[in-house]
Design a protein around this nucleic acid. Sequence first.
DNA 1: CCACGGATGAAACTTACTTTCACGGAGGCG
DNA 2: CGCCTCCGTGAAAGTAAGTTTCATCCGTGG
Lengths: 302, 302
Amino acid sequence: MVKTAKVSASHETGGLIVHISGLLPSLSPAEQRVARLVVADPADAARRTITDLATAAETSEATVIRFCRSVGMDGYPQLRIRLAAEAARRVEPPDARVVGGDIPPGADLAQIIATIAFSDARAVEETAEQLDAAVCEQVVEAISGAGRVDIYGAAASGFVASDFQQKLHRIGRTAFYFPDVHTALTSAALLGKGDVAMGISHTGTTLDAIEVLEQARARGATTVALTNFPRSPITDVADYVLTTAARETTYRSGAMASRLAQLTVVDCLFVGVAARNRARAKKALEVTAEAVQPHRVKGRRA
Amino acid sequence: MVKTAKVSASHETGGLIVHISGLLPSLSPAEQRVARLVVADPADAARRTITDLATAAETSEATVIRFCRSVGMDGYPQLRIRLAAEAARRVEPPDARVVGGDIPPGADLAQIIATIAFSDARAVEETAEQLDAAVCEQVVEAISGAGRVDIYGAAASGFVASDFQQKLHRIGRTAFYFPDVHTALTSAALLGKGDVAMGISHTGTTLDAIEVLEQARARGATTVALTNFPRSPITDVADYVLTTAARETTYRSGAMASRLAQLTVVDCLFVGVAARNRARAKKALEVTAEAVQPHRVKGRRA
DNA sequence: CCACGGATGAAACTTACTTTCACGGAGGCG
DNA sequence: CGCCTCCGTGAAAGTAAGTTTCATCCGTGG
C-alpha cells in the first residue's frame, strides 16, 4: 500500500477541478455540497472567503477545511489560489449551454457533435495532465518484466482491456484478456510473482474486476487498477493506481469520455513498454502488419 | 490616497503584471521592493503569505498592504488571487519537439504522455470539425429506422465496431457485431431494405469490411463507411461516408489516435440516435444500469 | 437495545491580514 | 540656522480569516 500513497502527490499543476469531480463520490454529503459549488464556478469560489463559501454550501467552515484536505490541499488559502489559477486557464467551451455537461433536448446534431468532441477532447487532455508519470513508469517496468499480463474489464472497460491486450500482444508481450469472470479468475489464480494483473473499471466498484485483482494479488502478482475514482474500492487491491479524469454527462452509462480517457492511458503504457525495447517492438509491428497485408486492397487510399 | 483612486477602476481583468511594472517608478522605495518581487515571480508571490512577502522584501506587512492599494487591489488576498490567475494564464506551449508527432528515442514517460495526449486530443477535435452533420443526420435516421444494424470492423476497428454495437443494444436497438468475416458475410446476406450495415476501417482498404458492405448493399441495405481516408476503396461501396481526421504517427499500426477519432464519431451517432427517442433510450439505460448493480460494490467510493 | 464510528457544526484558538499611530528624516519657510 | 510640516515607514494593536478541538448527532451492526 505504501507505493500508492504517493499518487496523491502528483496533482501539482492543473486538473484540479477534474480531480475534485473525480473525488466527489468519495466525499461526505456536506463536503459534496462544497465540492459542487467549487466545480460549478471555480472563479467565484476563489473570490469567496471561507465563511462565505461555508454559508453558500449550507455548512460550517470546519467542513470546508475538511474538504480542502480531502482534495489534497493544505488549507483554504491554497485551494483559493489553485482555483483562481485553474479558472484563469480555462478555455471557454464552444457553447456554454451545450457544454454545461448535458445535451439539451432540442439540440441538433451539430451541437451534439460539438459537445461530445469537447468533452472527449477535454477528458483526454485532463487525464494526461493528472497522470502520474512516476506511477506509469513503474507500471511500464512491471509489464516489461512480466512473464504474463492479465487484463480484466467489464462492458465498456472490456473493450479497453481487450485493446490493451491486443496492443501488448502485437509487440510480442504475453498478455491475456478474458471477457468471462470465471475464466479470468482461473487465469489470475495461475499468476505468480513477477506477473501483472490489471483491472479496468471506470467507477472502481465493479466486483468482478476487484475479485480478479484480489486473486492475482494473493498469488503474488503485481496489481494495477485503472479507474476514474482515486479512492474507489478497486484501489484497495491495487499496487499501482492509474486514474482517468473524465466527467461523464448524461447517458453516462454510455461511458463515452471515460472510455477515451482509459484508452489514452493505455496508449501511454503501450508506447512506454514499446519504447523500452524499440527494436524488438518495431520488428514485431512490421511483421504483424505484413501478416494482414493480403487482406488489404492494394493501391490508392487518397 | 487620492492619487491611486482612479487606477482601480480599470484593469478589471488581465495585465496585472504589466500594470504593476508601469506603476513601479511611482511607488515609494519600500513598495518598489515588493513590486519587484511580485513582477519577478508572480506565481511564487501568490504562494507567500503577507508576512512572508514582507520579510522577503525587507519591509513590513503594512507596506505590502499599501502596495496592494497602490496597484488598485482591495487587499492582499485579492492581489494573491489575481497573481495566481495571471501566472496561470501564461501557458507555455507544449514542447514542440515532442508534439511534432513522433516520439524521440530518448523520451521519458512524461514526454510520451504529453505527445500522445496532444495527438489524441487533436484527432478528436479535428474529427469533429470536419464531420459532416448532414451525413451524420442521415446515418442517424437510417439507424433509427433500421430493423437491424450490422457493424463490421477488424482488429482495432473491431473494438470500435463492438463498442458501437453494445451502445446501440443498450438503448434497445437491434445491432450486431461479428468478429468473424464469415459470420459477418452470412449475416449481411440476410439484411434487406431498411436495414443498415456499417463498415469501419481506418485505412479504408480492409477487404473484409468492403466485402461485408458489398454483400449488404447487394441485398438492399443502407451502407455506411467509417474511415480516415475519404477516397479509399471502402467508400465505393458505401451510401454514406463518415470520415475521421487522425494523423497517425509512428507505431501507427498501434492505431491509437485513429481509434479515438472513430470512437468520437460513434459517440456522436449514438447520442444522435438516443436523442431521437429520449424517453425510450433513457429508460433502457436505466434498466440496463440496474441490471449490473448487484455486480458493484455498494456504498460510497471511499 | 446499546455500543460504535463517522459526520457535523459550535466554539475555542491560531494565524493572517488590516488599521492605527508614533517615529524619523527630508524639504521648506521663517 | 532652526523649527515646522509632511511623507514614508514599521511596531503594535485590532480585526477578520482560517484552523483545531470537541461534543453531539445519526446511522450501522452486534
